[in-house]
Design a protein around this nucleic acid. Structure first.
Lengths: 236, 236
DNA sequence: CCGCTTCAATTGGTTATACCATTAGTATCG
DNA sequence: CGATACTAATGGTATAACCAATTGAAGCGG
């Protein structure tokens, strides 16, 4: 065996559709509560059979990301709606606190920010910008903007171009979401805090845009430190 | 509305099949590891279409109760392997390289080392020492000591006292072993490398023992950087 | 104009059938 | 005996047709 041949990729079509749909949900292309394309439309759009699309959708329904109603359509389930994901429930049963979450994120996301700074392309920047703008809108409308917040962090994961980083963050998403929600609710009580968060997001974005890994790392660290300190001060 | 009428049963056929199959599994009619009836057989037995059976089975697969393999059949998943599978199963559909793995570990483990340095207790030190000694023994016996290597890194995860960190690392190393352990062997085969690895492990351990988070972080970074550079040089 | 019924279009759910892709086992040939 | 080739079994995919629930608009009668 002189040479290591090609890796091949035996991927099921339904799984490929599944991956793409999940990505669209996570990136916010399909917004919570929104009705997505019909099975027939998706089948045509992907160029696969309706069977494969159905298999993919079923998977997402079981995972709690989608909701189907006969005669109406398929809808994106809002993350906050009850039944948390498998990972989230498992984590819960192990008594993981918000602090624990933030500590792990510290390592995971600071490193990701640095990676992103040296690899992100235009498309990645656009996703980050979009998330920041979306969060600004939400805040001005009196809402928390938790989804946009989570999307921003997911955008950085994608920008690393590291499939494993993306993979972990994807499975982290539900827990990330609930964590962010709790944080923002606490932060919201104190005027000015959300603006600080937004400012920090912008700083992270700028550092990545400038291609400065070190600055991106520090900006992310400062961001998470801020949230962490605030939460610790709350009495834990 | 004087009377509460019939509840009716607007139940999908696939769900009815699902319920029955799940019951059979829970009752032990289908025993762990056992191969169950084929989709075609089940379809005929239930008097429904194969599609409905497939929908039901898919649901059980996503839930981790069943396992399907093309060309072989559908099997009942043993209970102990249910938990570790949720990450491992999905990782199959990704093509992550060793570099990707190391990049994520960089963030995860450097941070963990720093955490461990400020929290580890005597018991944690003992686990680390044991892992290092074990690896030294293995190496002297002419073996690779990959398990001891992993144990050392897991010991650090435990030392963080962060259940989420432990959880992630646990699933991480399942993936590491089952997926790309073979590739790591290349690193160990070159004389001198194992000694360097052991030295690095010792440095990490000492930094943690001294309660120096900064040094622990740097020591871990140096360690992972070394492995990373080695693989980059290999041609990847 | 209002209220009810009816009907048609949309959309997910089901069925049937055929064929593809992978695997394990067996038969065959050297 | 061993390697190869074939075959059968099984899950995966693709079509096409029809069923069932929902919505909303059209039509009718008051």
């Amino acid at each position: 065996m002189p040479h290591k041949l090609k890796p091949i990729k035996p991927k099921r079509i339904s799984d490929q559709v599944f991956d793409q749909l999940r990505e669209l949900i996570f990136r916010g292309e399909f917004k919570a509560g929104e009705k997505i394309l019909t099975e027939r439309e998706l089948a045509e759009a992907f160029g696969v059979s309706r069977t494969s699309v159905r298999d993919a959708i079923n998977k997402l329904v079981v995972m709690g990301l989608l909701d189907q109603k006969q005669g109406q359509g398929t809808f994106v389930r809002s993350p906050e709606s009850k039944e948390k994901s498998l990972l989230a429930t498992m984590v819960e049963s192990q008594d993981a606190s918000i602090s624990d979450l933030l500590e792990v994120r510290m390592g995971l996301e600071c490193n990701a920010a640095a990676m992103a700074a040296s690899r992100a392309v235009e498309k990645d920047f656009q996703f980050m910008e979009k998330s920041i703008e979306e969060m600004q809108k939400e805040v001005k409308s009196g809402r928390l903007g938790t989804e946009a917040d989570a999307s921003f962090h997911m955008a950085i994961a994608y920008a690393t171009n590291n499939p494993l980083q993306v993979f972990i963050m994807k499975n982290f998403y539900d827990f990330l979401f609930t964590g962010i929600k709790v944080n923002l609710e606490g932060l919201y009580k104190i005027p000015g805090n959300i603006e600080i968060i937004l400012e920090q997001h912008t700083l992270i974005y700028q550092a990545i845009r400038e291609g400065n890994p070190d600055a991106a790392y520090r900006a992310m660290k400062q961001h998470i430190d801020f949230v962490y300190d605030f939460f610790e001060g709350q009495g834990e």
